[in-house]
Design a protein around this nucleic acid. Sequence first.
RNA 1: GGUGGAGUGGCUGAGCGGCCCAAAGCAACAGCCUGCAAAGCUGUCAACCCACGGGUUCAAAUCCCGUCUCCACCU
Length: 317
Amino acid sequence: MNSSTRPELLCIVGPTGTGKSNLAINTALELAKSGIKAEIVNADSMQFYKGMDIGTAKVPVDERFGIKHHMLDWLEIAEENTAARYQIEARKVISDLRAEGTLPIVVGGSMLYIAALINTFEFPGRDEALRAQLEQDLIDLGPAAMHKRLELLDETAASRIEPQNGRRIVRALEIVMITGEPFAASLPDQFESFLPVLEIGLNSAREHLVERLAERVRGMWALGLVEEVRSLESKGIRDSKTASQAIGYSQALASIDGRLTEEEAIAETILLTQRYARRQMSWFRRDPRINWFDYQDENLLEEVMSLVRTSLQLPGK
RNA sequence: GGUGGAGUGGCUGAGCGGCCCAAAGCAACAGCCUGCAAAGCUGUCAACCCACGGGUUCAAAUCCCGUCUCCACCU
């Protein structure tokens, strides 16, 4: 962590359902009291999509209290998206905000997207034709054969990717074949921020979060998630590559089709959500810059604000 | 009350005389992660002798008897 340099951007991370969005809004509101304008930059990969509201727990407009949100509702359902594209778009937003003196607050739980945005890393290029070919090969030959192929081209990368992980093997092959250079295939040990950042993490006891997530999912169904998904069918959610894999949405579709009963769909969604939260934690845990807070803490906002003020070198309240 | 079926790890569930100090999946726990990432993947843990008691057998989770519990059907 780098507490001596003043952060030029705030970032709120953590597993789903920990209240990141609300904390971000409240933080922005608090900062406004100190005369600092802050706006939110969404880093939740499913809240990018227009119309996906209930299932992504998007904060309703009237609960945003006028705090402007960027990178929210910027994609049509059918649009495919990638972390690389997000990196470009979101950085553009951030540099615009900074240029006008607004403090960006990045909020979300999409690990790779946040990493891409906040850290100095560049995605090696891409080649659609090559990729299509590799993906076909993967289907035809299986991951083990593809792994062998990678081994011949880049031993180190091969040693770092499990022979069963077809997805990553394909990407590694793609990179090696187009760049002609070895592919690190592992996350850097050092976290290097592309801008001085103050990271705030929200979490709590696992048992509590697990229960809370279950309730949240049930609530989504009660609020009409299935209706929402129905209305998204005409926009192409079924064929979309990214939006259709959203937890809850894919289960709702299955229940519409009768492949799952409503109860099964809910149960599966709960399970996937809880599993997702676990993966998020295992990702975020290794980022030493994060200042963790307990979302159950009654004085959460005060404590966060106190850290924020100190970091931004604002006079105490 | 009668008939039939079942009782195996936290849950689901295979095994039906020796290869079972008991498969697999889920959950739990840990980890990976550089253009699909709410995705993709890996590892670990978990059954005091498999409801309980007795018996048959060289050998039983597996066969027999009894008890208890559950399910289905019947009167």
